[in-house]
Design a protein around this nucleic acid. Structure first.
Lengths: 232, 232
DNA sequence: CGGCAATTTGAACATTTTCAATACGGGTGG
DNA sequence: CCACCCGTATTGAAAATGTTCAAATTGCCG
């Protein structure tokens, strides 16, 4: 049977509730504070938020507590990343009592139609771009040095086709050009990168990762990779 | 005629290039540094990035220079917000020489199929959620006080159905709970809000906006709304 | 070769964080 | 209904971190 509210809901209408077809999504209530899914979990369901609000949390580093990345309100989807990946990208927690309409990965796949459907193509590209684009944010976790090291580690492969000015890089990393300059000087002294006024070369990506995760000694100047590996 | 590469491209395939139909998008080359569209401009076209990378910039405040919010690489869309709004949300600038395939708003509308198509519904909800969700980021613009004032101003209507702990609010605003506490105390002294340990009431949203934009005196303690309006 | 603009460096300064101590509010049990 | 407890929020002072402004350097381009 078709619930009356499903003829008013965008998802219901798309499912054909106004033509007498039932909505493919099934609703379920969650009490405030309930974890709906966890970051890294095998992705099995996506949800439409019918009412309430949902916190999306993410762990910024290996040994850090997760932080809120966003809050979604009713009328939006969460967990749609199951379309383009195997695992959830963040942890979803009900910020209020909430009602969500869930659909399984296969149900979603069927609902969206053939993979070559234009709208589905655009949807998947949009979701994928959210994962691959360089975003400004980045957690404040660990300050300028760690933030920069993490960025270099993560974006190393793209460093070639992406050449911007220092001031713009500083922008992305949420710091002043002067600060970035000093950070680069430190990373150079630590032996992690080779930077000049016009280039950035990664010397020791292991060390970069160690700095990013806070496992490296950020004081001693010319520590080599080998020395670091030994002590890490 | 159908270009050979269009039978390899996700957008081309969705347009039916493999079934002998031409792609609805027309490509165009942009030199590095070219502005593709500007934040606030009337939204007329969306683009698929065929090659190159694109900087997405946004102005954080009324009298501030714009900052890079993200960098998109090839294989993604930009300007898709034309589906859910009248104006562009950010300024797009070619970060490298780039080739983009453009489509007009009406062309896009036609390409995506009927508004009740499930995939299109999901796409639009996703795009819309990007505009309405609370994100963690926020520019560093102006420090903790201005950041918090801007948040309160923008999220005032949602303040009711969204009650989180202070530590979580601090998370969203990218500061420590202690700092948020001090900021709230200052905003209270300035007469902008009424906060206690368990509630947040907005007293003077005009003043909040003035603080957010840096037009308010952030020193004087108990300034009233009337006084402020007179001097602003 | 000279000039311009971006980057780097230095030092004082402002802000935020940290860590510790205190106060408050809601819930529990008497 | 009140005293007590616990966890969260607030406050204070010192320390770390990042910012600002100015000056010097460097690379690029004509």
């Amino acid at each position: 049977m078709i619930k009356p509210e499903c003829t008013q809901c965008a998802v219901g209408v798309a499912s054909g509730t106004r033509r007498g077809q039932p909505c493919k999504f099934t609703d379920r209530a969650f009490a405030k504070g309930t974890v709906i899914y966890r970051e890294g979990d095998r992705a099995e369901q996506a949800w439409y938020v019918k009412s309430g609000s949902i916190m999306l949390r993410q762990r910024p580093g290996p040994d850090a507590a997760d932080e809120i990345k966003a809050v979604r309100f009713d009328g939006t989807f969460i967990g749609l990343e199951i379309l383009v990946g195997d695992t959830y990208r963040e942890t979803a927690v009900a910020a209020t009592d909430a009602v969500l309409c869930g659909v399984s990965a296969s149900g979603l796949d069927h609902w969206l139609g053939p993979p070559t459907d234009p709208a589905r193509t655009a949807l998947e590209l949009t979701l994928r771009s959210q994962a691959t684009e360089l975003r400004q944010t980045r957690t404040r976790q660990g300050g300028a040095l760690r933030r920069t090291a993490a960025w270099l580690r993560d974006e190393a492969p793209r460093l070639n086709d992406f050449c911007v000015q220092r001031r713009e890089l500083a922008d992305l990393l949420n710091m002043r050009p002067e600060t970035l300059s000093r950070v680069f000087a430190r990373l150079r002294d630590m032996g992690a990168v080779n930077v000049g006024r016009t280039y950035i070369d990664i010397v020791d990506i292991e060390l970069l990762g160690a700095i990013a995760d806070g496992r490296a000694d950020t004081e001693s100047p010319a520590e080599t990779s080998a020395e670091h590996a030994a002590q890490g």
